[in-house]
Amino acid sequence: MVYYIAFILIGVGIYGFLTQKNLFKHLVSLTIVDTAVNIFIISLGYIEGKEAPIYSKYTPIANFVDPLPQALVLTAIVIGVGTLALGASLLIKVYEKYGTLDVEQIATKEAEE
């Protein structure tokens, strides 16, 4: 089930990358693909009827879903925001140089120079 959601989200991200001309929209599409991949990896560790992997008063003995994908995704999300900020700052520089973020206008301006 969640597999299909993740696949369609990857599709939406790639669709945005192919059709949109604004560079900001490319950044948004990349973020969508990032989220979709995170959902997919988490869904690979889910087991029906088991609990979240934390020992507590309510789950004193182990009856847990797979904790390994969660550990991988935890760091990937924070790195995602780091790379998003780097991409956004690069876009600021692109806008300062060309005065636009449209891919085709940037290409014509580049050809004129």
């Binding site: 089930m1 969640v2 597999y3 299909y4 696949f7 369609i8 990857i10 599709g11 939406v12 790639i14 669709y15 192919l18 869904s43 690979l44 560790g45 889910y46 087991i47 029906e48 797979d66």
Partner: peptide
């Protein structure tokens, strides 16, 4: 293109364990 890609992904589902019974 995107539709083909999604179909490709869905075809690989037979290699993966069923959702919820990993």
């Amino acid at each position: 293109i995107v539709f083909g890609l999604i179909m490709f992904f869905i075809n690989t589902l037979s290699l993966l364990p069923k959702y919820g019974s990993v």
